[in-house]
Amino acid sequence: MNRTDHAAVAAPARVRPPRVRPSSKNRPPRDAGRNVFGYSLLAPGVLGFVAVGGTALVWVFWLSLHSVNALSQKKTFVGLDNYVRIFHDPDMKTVFPNTAFFVVLLSVLGTVAAVALAVLLNQKLAGINFFRSAIFVPALVTMVAWALVWHFIVQPKGLLDGITGAFGLDPMPWLRGGTLTLVVFAVVQMTKNVGVNVIIMLAALQSVPEDLLEAARLDGAGAWARFRHIVVPQISPAILMVFMLMVTGSFKVFEIVLLMTGGGPGVQSSVLSFAIYHEAFELNDIGYASSLAVILFLAVLALTGIIWQLRKRFVYYESD
């Protein structure tokens, strides 16, 4: 971030373009009072965040260097043993790829699906309000409820087998591991959250200035060209937002895993966040679970860095 972003926000195509001068020279200089004011506004949130988050991170790292016996309360320093163990743990050869699968699939597909549906719902069709509400319904259901319902739908000889059976298909082992189970999880997760994302996109779409589109149309730009060159740049902040929500949300697959398969069979449907919970709270292996948590944190940190770069490149208002 540098000081120019602030002004860049006011780039011409925003909601109030005509009134805004894209300059920062009018802003009063930073003075002591300004700093005091700024810091005092920031203090409660930032100090709280840093205190709790910092404590948690230092602590989890410290724990990850120990072997902890929760029952006898004995802690033994083991250095990086827990991390070495991760590399030798055969389960992790499944858990890490599964985690990456969800992060990539959910963030990319989830964002694309949200944009596509929002475009569809942004049309002036009779009864469109009904569909807009319908799409929002799963977002109102808690994740747990959604997972429980879906568990019934995909259980052996359940509703889904009934439906596929009506088309002459054999029952499928929906929850018996492999890619199929991961896909089921992805569908459950995506259907749950797509509504919120669509609304965000819809909001962005509706604030795309009509005159810009009209001008492009007069210039002879086709529907796709208009979408690609006008709409997408205009809604790029919303796309970033949705993408971010989907990335963080992709770790929430935890609940689906816990409620639908418990990570099974074996660890075939497990993900990193579930493995952390399982090791820490079901097997009481705090040290090992902490090392997994540190890995999760580092992975997320790397993701944050990547998205930060993407944001500079793709988000319209942030970099002109």
């Binding site: 971030m1 965040f49 948690a56 602590w59 724990l63 971010m244 935890f254 952390i276 820490a280 997320v300």
Partner: peptide, 22 residues
């Protein structure tokens, strides 16, 4: 801002163990 932004990506699963002990 960057520090706070990292919080958006800090999954509760990564901090649940120390927070639980806390």
């Amino acid at each position: 801002f960057v520090v706070l932004l990292s919080g958006i990506f800090l999954p509760p699963e990564a901090t649940i163990i120390p927070l639980f002990l806390l």
